[in-house]
Design a protein around this nucleic acid. Structure first.
Lengths: 255, 255
DNA sequence: TGGTTTTATTGACCCTGGTCAATGGCTGTC
DNA sequence: GACAGCCATTGACCAGGGTCAATAAAACCA
């Protein structure tokens, strides 16, 4: 048993493990994974989990909270590359480099599981299923990034925001939360940055979504209530890949 | 020795191996990799290497030629997710799924090395360095996709084309070709699709680049001669990550 | 609690790049 | 070598969404 382990923080008892690295490991294998995981104190809102350029020593799984990851452009502005929810793995994009290629910052108080790379690599060669899961997670990240490329190069402002809200809804649902009511942990400006829009455009699209009754006015800008999911889907012009991720269709077919 | 092996097609004798999967394998390990690799007949221009929805049974390393990979949008148009040059690995984005999530089509006559997934996974657990290299390649792909997200969400048409040409130049250079003179294997329309622009815009930017003397008029639209690389770099507004990939700076630093 | 800062909304205006249309240049084929 | 089809270029026009500016609403904090 791991000295760092506290109540309810072992993979075996974690409700997120079916979505996370331990998926398809046996109980005894999970114990070995637990032995290399370090669980420190929470990261407060605004604090960095790691910064671009830091030595790359671990990857992180989110236990609770939200993290945004971003790269810095030449001009010093951020380009947000993702918002990460519980069970998602952070740091994979720096694999094969000595240093983190992005920064990661908490959008709210966040707890993470730290997995030292050195131990992960050693354990992966002993537990083939763990290595395979790391590759599956990386494959999913590549697919998501490529869907994001599609969104950024082909979709209108309305389609972008609709796709984003549906993606969040689905991710909350998979984690056992409501897919219709949730709180946005990121600002309008973060959303705009991520979606390749101006803040003002995001704000205007939210207003339009409310006026058309697709989302309800909750009184707070951060609180979302999806009132008409079907119309939101229509508005998003989802690609096949997105429909698969959202669970709207079973599997892709040949064209 | 592998029955499929032909002259100059073993990893051990392939000039691309330092850029490809076998990097940092010993000769005897390379032999074991060679044993699972299948090298079939060339793929002609326009032919598919695989199609979105096909069962996912192998990944592919390009030996010669160029492949474009793309997903289909709901409306049936393509979204190009990448152009792949010799030594680059294709199919990683479908890791963890039963079926290919993108299609891959040859832009010119192309030779590939086919690596059956089942064998690759088994061999990776026996040769930890091979598994690590697969993860490094996937990490690089994630970083490139995220740089593409930056390009698509923040850069102007000029900056996009300049970045694209520099990226191609660098990739040709690493493969031993000229970084100043090369032939584009993709059409204006493919470039436009990949860069999130209209064909007409790509054409206009090419004209502007010629008029300003940054690229020379070679008489052919597909033939590029970079006349002033420095100004092209300035024009591209490269991010730190891009500068690292292009070898313009050594490593990222903390901000 | 009041004052300061950050975040969100809304309006007015403008610009980059998309769309439509016409033309010219290649490539391939019978 | 003439025709077909695709690819590339250029011009004219237009619109989606960016920018700037003003205000309102939250969040923060001493």
């Amino acid at each position: 048993m791991n000295q760092h382990m506290r109540h309810n923080t072992a993979c075996k008892t974690c409700s997120l493990s079916p979505l996370c690295l331990p998926v398809s490991l046996s109980f005894s294998e999970m114990d070995r994974l637990d032995d290399i995981i370090e669980r420190g104190r929470p990261i407060e809102k605004g604090q960095y989990l790691f910064r671009q350029g830091d030595p790359m020593e671990s990857v992180f799984a989110i236990r609770t909270g939200t993290i945004k990851s971003f790269a810095l452009t030449r001009a010093g502005e951020e380009q947000i590359t993702g918002f990460h929810l519980p069970s998602e793995i952070l740091g994979l994009s720096s694999f094969g480099t000595q240093h983190h290629q992005v920064s990661a910052r908490a959008l709210e108080t966040t707890n993470v599981c730290e997995i030292p790379l050195e131990h992960l690599e050693r354990l992966s060669s002993q537990l083939p299923e763990l290595g395979r899961q790391v590759m599956r997670v990386m494959g999913r990240e590549i697919r998501e990034d490529q869907q994001m490329m599609l969104l950024l190069s082909k979709k209108s402002a309305e389609e972008r925001l609709a796709s984003f809200l549906l993606s969040l809804a689905q991710r909350f649902k998979r984690r056992g939360y409501s897919e219709h009511n949730f709180r946005l942990t990121m600002s309008r400006s973060d959303m705009a940055n991520y979606l390749g829009l101006a803040v003002e455009t995001v704000s205007r699209v939210f207003t339009r979504l409310q006026k058309s009754g697709i989302i309800a006015d909750t009184g707070s800008a951060r609180e979302v209530h999806i009132a008409d999911q079907k119309r939101l889907c229509d508005m998003a012009s989802l690609s096949e890949g997105e429909r698969v991720e959202l669970g709207l269709i079973e599997t892709t077919t040949t064209h």
